[in-house]
Each structure stands twice: as structure tokens, then as C-alpha cells.
């Protein structure tokens, strides 16, 4: 995950409290989604950014997961996200995201 984004997530968690923060991931690959999810829960696995050794345990979802989809205005989802749903391997992404949440999410 981009070092600047790590810094921003860390700051947001300090500002609003980790229990009040949800990270939404929009990556197209299961691997990249899992890496970002791991970074904001267990800490930066690449040991490069501000979240190295910082386990925020945040709630984290991919934008195409049902839990997130339910939060959207249907027309906006259709206009902005639906095309990508056809492109990505959603089952694999959901599997990886659930695995990260069950291991590292504290809230």
C-alpha cells in the first residue's frame, strides 16, 4: 500500500478512533486487495510504511462486496462500479477479504 495512503489511514484512525473507521478497497486483484487489507489491519507486511508494526485492526471491505454494495445508491453503483464487477474475480477477492477480517479485524 502506498506510503502516503498508510500515513493518511493512520491519521484518520487517530482522529476518529479505529472503531469508527471503515477502509474501502477498490483494487482489481485479490492479491493487491488482501495486501492493502492486511496493511490496515495487521500492519504493513512490506515493512516500508508508517503502518509497519502498527496493527490498527480496522474494518475493511472491497467495494464490490455485498456489505458495501448495500450501502450504495443503486444508480451510482451501476454508473461507477458495475463494469468492474464484470472484470474482477469477485469470489476470490471476497474469500481473501473474509480471511483477513477474521484474522485481524478487531472491530
Amino acid at each position: 500500500m502506498d506510503l502516503e495512503n498508510q500515513r493518511r489511514v493512520k491519521e484518520f484512525a487517530e482522529q476518529v478512533g479505529p472503531e469508527n473507521l471503515v477502509v474501502i478497497i477498490g483494487a482489481g486483484e485479490a492479491g493487491a486487495s488482501a495486501l492493502a487489507a492486511e496493511t490496515v489491519t495487521a500492519g504493513d507486511p512490506t515493512y516500508a510504511g508508517p503502518l509497519t508494526g502498527v496493527s490498527l485492526g480496522l474494518k475493511v471491505y472491497h467495494v464490490c462486496e455485498d456489505e458495501m454494495k448495500a450501502e450504495f445508491d443503486e444508480a451510482i453503483y451501476e454508473d461507477q462500479v458495475s463494469m468492474m464487477e464484470m472484470v474482477i474475480d469477485l469470489d476470490e477477492i471476497v474469500e481473501q477479504m473474509e480471511s483477513i477480517r477474521s484474522q485481524f479485524t478487531k472491530y
Partner: peptide
Amino acid sequence: GAGDVPVSNLKMIAA
């Protein structure tokens, strides 16, 4: 973890 970039782009165009 960045996938196959040309294939992803082609898939997006197809979608």
C-alpha cells in the same frame, strides 16, 4: 499482486 495489466484493461473495455 498487480495482476495482468493488459488483460485487465482489455476486460474493462470488453465489459
